[in-house]
Every structure is written in structure tokens, then in C-alpha cells.
């Protein structure tokens, strides 16, 4: 995902803001990292450039 996508993304649980943590990037493109709910503390992984913003009860494992 591009970093500019942060402008529109929010926490699926309460629509509050997300914080971005980057492990791997390619220019503007975030390849690996995570989004963290500022209010909920929930961690949403970014893998292969695609953020997984499923609510926790719909995630695998």
C-alpha cells in the first residue's frame, strides 16, 4: 500500500485513527509492516503490500 492511503484508512472496530509502522518499503510503497489502532491498540498486519484490516474475530490463527 502507498503511504498516502493512510489519509483514508481507519480502524475497522471504532473508525478511529491508525498508526503506521514500516518494516519494509519501496519508495512510497509499504511492503511489510503494521497498522495499529490508536484507540483500540489492535494490530493489523501489512503483508505483500496489502493491509489486513479484517476485524480480529474474522482473522485467521
Amino acid at each position: 500500500m502507498k503511504e498516502s492511503l493512510m489519509d483514508i484508512l481507519c480502524d475497522p472496530l471504532d473508525k478511529s485513527e491508525l498508526e503506521l509502522e514500516v518494516d519494509e518499503r519501496d519508495g512510497e510503497e509499504i511492503i511489510e509492516g503494521r497498522l495499529i489502532g490508536k484507540e483500540t491498540g489492535e494490530v493489523y498486519p501489512i503483508e505483500d503490500g496489502i493491509p489486513n484490516l479484517l476485524p480480529p474475530d474474522m482473522r485467521e490463527e
Binding site: M1, C10, D11, G49, P51, L53, L54
Partner: peptide, 17 residues
């Protein structure tokens, strides 16, 4: 194109965007 894995019931997108 931006791709997001998410549920249609809890869209993680800002209101009125």
C-alpha cells in the same frame, strides 16, 4: 489501485471520503 483486505460490514475507511 489500492487493495485492502477487509469486511464489507466494517469498512475501515473514513466517513464521507
Amino acid at each position: 489501485l489500492a487493495l485492502i483486505q477487509a469486511d464489507a460490514g466494517s469498512l475501515p475507511l473514513e466517513s464521507q471520503s
